[in-house]
Design a protein around this nucleic acid. Structure first.
Lengths: 204, 204
DNA sequence: CCTGAAAAATTACGTGA
DNA sequence: TCACGTAATTTTTCAGG
C-alpha cells in the first residue's frame, strides 16, 4: 500500500514518460537505474513505467538500428506504386514480409510507397516477382541516403506545442481548456491557440 | 574445448552475427545469455560480438520503436521536394533535427523525400517554415499508415538468397563459384543462378 | 512510488586453441 | 584472434510498506 497517487491514465504521457522514452531512444539497453537517476525516480519505478508504456502500445518494441548497407549490399530504392485496382492490403503484407523491404507507406488514397534494398543487378526482376509489373505502374527512384531519426537532437520525443508542433521545453507554458490540458512552446503560441479556440467556441 | 576458429574479419558477418542481430531486432533488451543459448555460445561470447558489431558500425544504436501517433497527434505525410537549386545538405540537416520529421531520404539525383507528422491544421504553415515554399516545389501526400519493418516475421536480417533476395533458412543451399560462396533459399533459385552464371561465362 | 533483499545479468580478466 | 569459464560488479525482480 502506498500513498494516494492519483491513477494515471496510460494514454496520457507525462513529462517523465517522455523523458524515459527519449533516453531509451538514444540507447535502449541503458540500465533503468541510470534512467532513474536522470529523471529522479527509483529503478523499479522506471521499470514499472516502461512496462505500462509497452502495454499501452506506446513502445512497440526495443530494437536495433543497423547500417543495412553492411548487411544487404543493394542500394536503397524508393518505389511508388500506382495501384491498378489491386488489393492494397495483400500487397502491403507481402511487401512487409519481404526481406529487402525496410519501410512501407500507405497513402490516404490507397497507393503504396516503399523503401527497399533489392538484390543488386536484378532490381527489375525482384520488383516483378512481387508486383506484377504488367498490371501496376511503378516509379522507382534510386536513393543515396536513408535516414531514420528516432531522437536526433535529443528533442524528438518532447511534448509538442499544440499550436506550432515544435518542442515544448522548460520555457513552455500550459493551459487547461474545457478540461483538456494543452502545452505550448511560447506565450505567443498559447495566446494564438486560445484566441482561435475562443473564436470557434463563440461561433458555435 | 572447441574446434579451431578461423580468423574472422569484422567486415564479414557470419551466420551467428546475423542470428544475433535478428534476435536483437526482435527485442533489443533481451539478455545476452538468452541469445547465447539460441546461437550456441556463452554470454560473454555474445557480448564480445555485439561490441565488435557496434565498433564496426553495423549496429548504429539500440533504440525503441514507438507508436508515434500516441505521442504526436498529427497525421503522417510524405513530402517530395523538387529541389530548386537549394543546398540539399543544409535542408536535410534542418529536417533531420525538426521534431516532427521521422525519415529523410535523399535521392541519387539530389532530391529530398521525407516523412513527417506536422501539427494538425497547419501543415502548410509548418512546411513553409522550413522549406520556403516560394522557391521549392513540394508534393505532399497524406499517409494512412507508416510501417517500419526491422524484422517482421523474424527473418529480415537473415542471409539473402543470391537469386531472389529472400531469406535463406536452414533449408537453403550453398554453392561456391569461382571462389565466391553464394547462398540460395531453394534449389530452383540455385540452379537458375548457376545457369545464368554459366551462360554469361560462356558468352565471355 | 519507494526501499531493500534475492535473483539474474553483464562485465572483467585469465587461459586455451 | 576468438571464445570460454570464473569471479566481481551491476542490474533487475520481487517483497513489503
Amino acid at each position: 500500500m502506498w500513498h494516494e497517487v492519483e491513477p494515471r491514465c496510460v494514454h496520457e504521457l507525462d513529462d517523465t514518460d517522455l523523458e524515459i522514452l527519449e533516453l531509451l531512444g538514444e540507447d535502449a539497453r541503458r540500465p533503468y537505474s541510470e534512467i532513474a537517476d536522470q529523471v529522479g525516480m527509483s529503478g523499479p519505478g522506471v521499470s514499472d513505467r516502461v512496462d505500462r508504456l509497452r502495454e499501452a502500445g506506446v513502445i512497440e518494441r526495443f530494437t536495433v538500428d543497423l547500417d543495412r548497407s553492411q548487411i544487404r549490399g543493394g542500394s536503397p530504392v524508393l518505389v511508388q506504386v500506382s495501384d491498378g485496382g489491386e488489393s492494397v492490403e495483400r500487397l502491403q503484407e507481402d511487401l512487409s514480409s519481404a526481406d529487402a523491404v525496410e519501410h512501407v507507406f500507405v497513402t490516404a488514397a490507397g497507393d503504396l510507397t516503399f523503401i527497399a534494398r533489392p538484390p543488386e543487378g536484378s532490381v527489375r526482376e525482384w520488383l516483378d516477382d512481387r508486383l506484377d509489373l504488367g498490371t501496376v505502374t511503378v516509379d522507382v527512384t534510386l536513393l543515396d541516403e536513408v535516414n531514420w531519426t528516432p531522437s536526433i537532437g535529443g528533442t524528438a520525443f518532447a511534448l509538442a506545442c499544440a499550436e506550432c508542433g515544435n518542442t515544448v521545453d522548460s520555457e513552455g507554458e500550459q493551459e487547461t481548456i474545457d478540461g483538456d490540458r494543452y502545452h505550448f512552446c511560447c506565450s505567443s503560441c498559447r495566446s494564438q491557440f486560445v484566441e482561435r479556440h475562443d473564436r470557434i467556441a463563440e461561433e458555435a
